[in-house]
């Protein structure tokens, strides 16, 4: 499906699906890149997310009718050519992130394990076995929503969000997982910590994530965690 609708005097939204699907997220990420590079100064923002691409444009440089025509052609052509090299793309865009899964970095491991009648080791094994796809980036700069967590460990958000979490915290919320790129409040179930910096406002791009990227988590030891610059946080309250 494709539907293009105006949302304000300077923005429109392209709808490409009606349910969350990681394959669609991969396509949407690619189409969004394609749009970002295919147009010049008339577009201000191109924001892909799960099933949509939001576009903000300069109202004197273009208008909805003109954009709609061009976008329709571009998206159609893209989806037609996409079918062929779909698989190659997916494999080529992948990053691996180290995670120290432990009670000292992941205070919610016991809660997640208990909920599913599993051990803490099961939870970390299952979490690090899946390959995830970035479905959206938002909430805060560089915060990537990754799908989909294995139903065997999927756990709803905490009833009461924490007022502060340390940067690098790896969380689960339902069938989504994410790494908090900076210290922030948050309600996700925290199961570990990734010691690698995931946001840098002095770099372009500021974050390694983009919609459609594949992400794998690699379990690391306590020593490796410290070697990679990880630090322990002493303010956990369950």
């Amino acid at each position: 499906m494709m539907d293009i609708q105006p949302v304000s005097e300077t923005a429109l939204i392209i709808r490409l699906g009606d349910h969350i699907d990681t394959d669609l997220a991969v396509k949407i990420g690619d189409v969004a890149d394609h749009i970002r590079h295919g147009f010049s100064s008339e577009l201000i923002e191109v924001i892909p997310s799960y099933t949509t691409i939001y576009i903000q444009y300069h109202p004197l440089k273009t208008d909805f009718i003109r954009l709609k025509g061009r976008l329709q052609g571009l998206v159609d052509a893209f989806f037609r050519s996409e079918d062929k090299d779909d698989r190659a793309r997916k494999v080529s865009k992948k990053i691996t992130l180290p995670v120290y899964y432990s009670l000292e970095t992941g205070p919610d491991l016991p809660e997640v394990a208990q909920r599913h009648n599993r051990t803490v080791a099961d939870v970390t094994r299952i979490h690090s076995q899946s390959t995830y796809v970035v479905c959206a980036i938002g909430f805060s700069p560089g915060f990537a929503f990754l799908g989909s967590v294995d139903p065997a460990i999927a756990t709803p958000r905490k009833f009461e969000p924490r007022k502060m979490l340390p940067a690098g915290s790896v969380g689960i919320a339902g069938q989504q997982t994410a790494v908090y790129p900076s210290d922030s409040p948050g309600g996700w179930q925290i199961i570990g910590n990734c010691p690698v910096s995931l946001i840098d406002f002095d770099k372009t791009p500021m974050s390694p994530f983009s919609v459609g990227l594949s992400v794998q988590f690699q379990p690391i030891s306590r020593d490796e965690f410290f070697q990679l610059g990880g630090t322990l946080w002493s303010h956990w309250k369950s």
Partner: peptide, 10 residues
């Protein structure tokens, strides 16, 4: 709704 891009003034 499934999270989507938000316009100024929404």
């Amino acid at each position: 709704v499934i999270s989507e891009g938000i316009a100024l003034g929404a």
